[in-house]
Design a protein around this nucleic acid. Structure first.
Lengths: 329, 329
DNA sequence: ATTGTTTATGTAAACGGTTACATATAGTTT
DNA sequence: AAACTATATGTAACCGTTTACATAAACAAT
């Protein structure tokens, strides 16, 4: 690999001059610039980011910490982040925390040691480890966080919408899946649904599901229909769980949506390929990722920031696990 | 952030001594070591990776390049890579190439500029841009690559298995979905299936699907059943496509597996939650990721390497989109 | 007592960039 | 002609580590 010294020698100038043409700073004569540029091309030189980061005390890297990329909600988020960050010349240092505080700390540490320019984190430990004293710009994704920058979807409203829609479409014995207690967005949805259901004239049950894993989703679906065989509506905590519920209901020979209506949450890409295709509350995952990246990059560039918090709207995607409602209704 | 100098001052030694205790190299008196260690703790010091990388000309970073993390096959791969790499003290610099050569080059460039210790790439451009002249240890994932290190699943055999199973279970008019031509593993599967189908006494058609996108999957599924309404067996190019086929078949009122059998490829986590749950050829994605990481890390550590190529076996996961075959059959 | 080895520590040069500062020439003003 | 300014370039310090080399004390061997 050629270094700036090699270029300087080839162009018969000092390294300072080369650095000047590289960064377009200070004065440099047109002729010299050309000589330098030629040398750069000839040597196929490109500056060493590590050296640059060392002097500048800051790199072109962004740390991205997700709970688990294997959960289908996160790839879209990650992609949103990547696309925006990449567009602005930054790259991603990526890790999964598994919602485990030690792993999270380990990654934060890595981020610091590698001089990342900023951090985007979608973890629940947020409060506990105080990103603020890190003095590194950060934004929290998929989690509202009071004193800090954050981008999230309106989970509570999502829960309300889900409840309203399912009630309006005729379910009277509804089971709502609560989702893991430590996952804030899941709790928001749950609260929203509860709020509406409480005000409605319907029976409902709550079932807690302690994780978002594929394995367990199946078991919960089974449990659901043994415990509440007469349920005619299910508000799932996310689309994976909803998929499991569709699966189990179909296995039991229930007609969807005639016998049971099901509403999911997230709108992961596969939702529309399920059969029946899943009606769900959509979180704009990709956009959330992008917005988070934009917000972070604005901070880094010291651009003016309109708001520390970006709450993205959530929408009801009507597909075929809910009944149609006539337009006059 | 405290630097090594601060520690040296606090412990009343030179930076060299601090560095010695940090790296456990050379001689250092027991008492001095203790003083240094105390100073490190007091100042909450931890070495700057950037400076270290600069001197060492190599970081603790691994570049990971995937086509698109949004395709459900890749998160598992990525996770396998991450877990292994992380275990051995390395971190991930991550990017999506979209199978686009410019993006790929851009990322390779980033990797080089950031002194990554190694690269894991799951792209098809491999040959074209010659990772070898990079002089950075690399392994190719999900792609066989002749002169280079690679980890992949036995796609051809997978195709054979799929064909054998579907024929054995009674399908006589089979449609095989070909998958994008530029995706090598998809072609391997296709070839394998073709090989067996050619030798069998069955009718079959080939339909090309030019991408793995969710959107288009649906359209192809529709096209499939309008073009070949009498098909009683479908070998899909991957599980997403298979999901779309299940969806469409169900929509048309076909019984699965009685009227049509469907076999997918990959065994993405959601496959078992589809209804009917999907019979598929499983690629051990997570293990592939881990193996790739192990292979790379062995190279980096100059450990002896048994083989440049690791071909992982593929297995038939029998679920409910294929008929049962009696054990005496 | 002299020499050689082992242990312990420090000094300074690297790694590859950026930039403050010094210097020099050319072109403008007065 | 003197003084000032704009342009052009170089020198060297710095970012925070690691390590080759130098130095010195302690101890052992002759």
């Amino acid at each position: 690999m050629a270094t700036i010294k090699d270029v300087a020698k080839a162009a018969e100038v000092s390294v300072a001059t080369v650095s000047r043409v590289l960064n377009k700073t200070g004065y440099v004569h047109e002729d010299t610039r050309k000589r330098v540029e030629t040398a750069i091309k000839e040597l196929n030189y490109s500056p060493n980011e590590v050296a640059r980061s060392l002097y500048k005390r800051g790199s072109k890297l962004i740390g991205l910490l997700l709970p688990d990329i294997t959960n289908p909600f996160f790839p879209e988020l990650a992609r949103g982040v990547e696309d925006e960050v990449q567009k602005q010349g930054y790259r991603l240092l990526f890790g999964n925390s598994d919602e485990n505080i030690d792993k999270e700390l380990e990654y934060i540490h890595t981020f610091v040691q590698n001089h990342v320019a900023g951090i985007i984190s979608a973890t629940d430990q947020a409060g506990k480890l105080n990103y603020q004293h890190l003095k590194i710009p950060s934004v929290f994704l998929d989690r509202a966080s009071d004193g800090e920058f954050s981008v999230y979807a309106d989970g509570k409203e999502g829960g309300r919408i889900a409840a309203r829609e399912i009630v309006q479409r005729g379910s009277r014995k509804i089971t709502v899946l609560k989702g893991p207690v430590h996952v804030q967005p899941a709790q928001d949805r749950f609260q929203g649904a509860l709020e509406v259901l409480g005000e409605s004239n319907v029976d409902f049950h709550v079932m807690t599901t302690s994780s978002f894993s594929f394995q367990e989703a199946k078991q919960w679906a089974e449990e659901l229909f043994t415990k509440y065989p007469e349920a005619d509506g299910v508000i799932a905590s996310n689309d994976i769980t909803a998929a499991a519920v569709i699966h189990e209901a179909s296995r039991l020979g229930k007609m969807i949506p005639e016998d049971v209506q099901i509403i999911g949450f997230d709108d992961i890409p596969l939702s529309s390929l399920l059969f029946p295709s899943l009606s769900t509350i959509r979180q704009p995952a990709y956009d959330m990722g992008r917005e988070a990246a934009k917000l972070l990059l604005s901070q880094i560039a010291n651009k003016p920031i309109e708001s520390q918090h970006i709450k993205l709207p959530v929408t009801f995607i009507e597909r075929n696990t809910t009944r149609k409602v006539d337009n006059n209704g």
